[in-house]
Computed example of a mutant assay.
Amino acid sequence: MSLIDPDSKCYEEGVKLSQRIGQRIQELDQREWDFKMKQYKNREDKEKALIDAVRDIGVAQANNQPKNVYNIKGWW
């Protein structure tokens, strides 16, 4: 673009082309960024679901413990 003379007939077309190229590059960058953010969000959701599942298992196991523990001689 710097080589095109501002007084030439094609200068306006060159400016428009440059703007379109710039806009397209921004769109592609934004699309790539959105995709990476979606991957990050999915990974976060998966890890949160895993943590919740492990927590639920621990709570269920703790709730199923015997209520009365008898100390029978020789056990401890």
Rank of each mutant, 00 (worst) to 15 (best):
V54I: 02
K48T: 03
Q65H: 06
L50P: 02
L3H: 07
Y70Q: 14
L28E: 02
E13Q: 13
G22D: 04
S2A: 14
W75Q: 09
R43W: 02
S8T: 03
D7V: 03
R20Y: 03
D52E: 14
K36L: 10
E12D: 09
P6L: 06
I72S: 09
E13A: 14
C10R: 10
K36I: 08
I4S: 11
R24Y: 09
K38D: 11
L28F: 01
E12G: 06
M1L: 12
M37Y: 10
D45I: 04
Q30C: 07
P66M: 13
K48H: 05
N64P: 00
P6G: 07
L3F: 08
E47Y: 05
Q39N: 07
I51M: 05
Q30R: 10
R43D: 02
V69A: 12
K46Y: 11
E47H: 04
E13W: 13
D29N: 14
Q23H: 04
D34C: 04
K38H: 07
D45T: 06
M37Q: 15
D34R: 05
K48G: 01
K46E: 10
A60E: 14
P66E: 15
G58N: 05
Q19W: 02
Q39Y: 01
S8V: 04
V54G: 00
A53G: 06
S2W: 11
Q19M: 05
I25R: 14
E13L: 12
A53K: 15
S18G: 07
V69R: 12
K38G: 04
Y40M: 15
L28M: 04
K41H: 02
Q23N: 05
W76T: 10
P66H: 15
C10E: 14
Q26T: 07
I21W: 06
L3V: 06
D45A: 10
K9H: 13
A49V: 04
L17I: 02
E12W: 07
F35P: 00
I57G: 00
G58A: 01
K67R: 12
V59D: 03
N64D: 15
I57Q: 07
R31P: 00
E13I: 12
D34H: 06
F35E: 09
I72E: 14
D5E: 09
R24K: 12
W33K: 13
L3K: 08
Y11W: 02
R24T: 05
D29E: 15
F35L: 07
S2E: 10
R24A: 11
K41Q: 02
R31T: 01
G14P: 00
S2N: 12
A53V: 12
N64G: 08
D52S: 07
M1F: 14
I72T: 13
W33F: 15
D52A: 09
R31I: 01
W75D: 09
L3P: 01
I25V: 14
F35G: 00
S8W: 02
G58S: 04
I25C: 09
M37T: 13
V15T: 02
E44T: 03
E44S: 03
E12Q: 13
W33P: 01
M1H: 08
I51L: 06
R55W: 01
R31Q: 04
K73I: 15
R20D: 02
